[in-house]
Simulated assay, not measured.
Amino acid sequence: MEKTLSKQGETYFLNLRFLLILTVLIGNAIEPLIRQMDSVHALYLWIFTFHMPLFVFVTGYFAKGTLAGAAGRKTLLQIGMQYIIFQSLYSLLDMTIFRVQNIHHSFFAPYLLLWFLASHIGWRLLTLAMHKFNPAAQVVLSLVLGVLVGYLRLDGAWLSFSRTFVYLPFFVIGYHFSFDIFVHFFTKQKKRIAAAASALLFAIIAMYGLHMPEGWLFGSMTYMQLGHLEWYAGFYRIALYGLQFISGAAFLAWVPFRKRHITDLGRRTLYVFLLHGFMIRLAVISGLYHYMDHPLAVLMLIAGALCLAFALAQPVVRKITHPVIEPPVTWITRLERLTWSRPL
């Protein structure tokens, strides 16, 4: 039974991971249009109330068993290699082909979506550092750190410092998450209620929440950068955590428990995540968004984003890009052993 639940949990979280990457592509695709149409703005804000918190939550869940030891070290090395490769690629293309202005190219300033890689390293190291505390204490401590980091007088985007601490609670919760308890708690009736709550939240945002400052949802800025110098600014983040927990929990109702076509695609979301930025850049410089002045055009754009996600998650894409997306790191460990084995 335990093995069955473990397999069912893997299936559920793979389904969730692919649904989340769909929302990532939709959010990035419609971002240039959020000032033009209220409905698009509402969809964008609704997505941002749950998609990154849940993505970090899923990342924490799949970190079980690979956080410490040789497996954990290999994962950290691979994430570091991914960051170096794609930070270089995106920066190079921005300067040569895309000609994007006003972007600071530095390994200390993660390029747009690459903040996730920099923060992933931080989440793993911080969770390891808290291993002596019980899970509840780890969650509380991570929440406190997420609130306190906003008071620091620094650039929150530096090495994704702010987002690392802001999203740390979701990683810790995911790491300690018990699918056994969840599957028995999340009955069909509760799932219906959660789905209704998710839809209701979208309606509330569409009617009353369009003036919500997006900077708070991104988690990349300190309170000073957000224009809040008040001593009680941390309470805004606490309120935001409440919104994200509610929205994230409600979105779980849309995720199927059983194996579907998207289950296998969920194994390759990293490929979608790291490669789709090139396509979004191409769409922007092509002038495509100049024609996005009608709801039907926006629907076609969203459909295109969904098709792109399915295309980039295909096995053939993994076969071609595997050396870049999941670079081998055994040569690093061999080099280390060779270095340390030399006599002084």
Rank of each mutant, 00 (worst) to 15 (best):
F202P: 06
G287S: 03
S119Q: 12
M279G: 13
I85L: 08
A157S: 13
T330L: 04
F133D: 08
Q244D: 04
E31R: 09
I332V: 13
L240Y: 02
H131G: 11
V166T: 10
H276Y: 12
V24L: 09
F62W: 08
M52K: 02
S119N: 04
A309P: 07
V255Y: 05
Y90W: 06
P213I: 15
L89A: 15
Y167T: 08
A194D: 02
V166F: 11
K74F: 02
H104P: 02
Q189N: 12
A196L: 12
P328C: 02
A311P: 06
L114W: 01
E10S: 13
A233S: 05
P327G: 01
L19Q: 14
R268M: 13
A63Y: 05
A249K: 03
V58Q: 01
M300Q: 13
L312Y: 11
F179C: 00
L288I: 06
M207W: 15
H41Q: 14
S106H: 03
G174Y: 04
T96R: 01
A203I: 15
Y151C: 01
A297Q: 04
N102D: 15
A305M: 00
L16K: 11
P169N: 02
L274M: 05
L67K: 07
A71I: 09
R35K: 14
Y83Q: 06
A197V: 10
A42C: 10
L117D: 00
W158R: 14
I181F: 12
L113D: 12
E2W: 08
Y208I: 05
A297T: 06
L335H: 12
D38G: 14
F108R: 03
L168H: 08
F186N: 01
G234N: 05
E326H: 09
L243I: 09
T321A: 15
I181M: 12
L113C: 07
R73N: 07
A203S: 11
A196C: 09
T49P: 00
Y232R: 10
L125S: 06
L306T: 11
G287A: 00
G242E: 00
H41Y: 13
H184Q: 11
I47L: 08
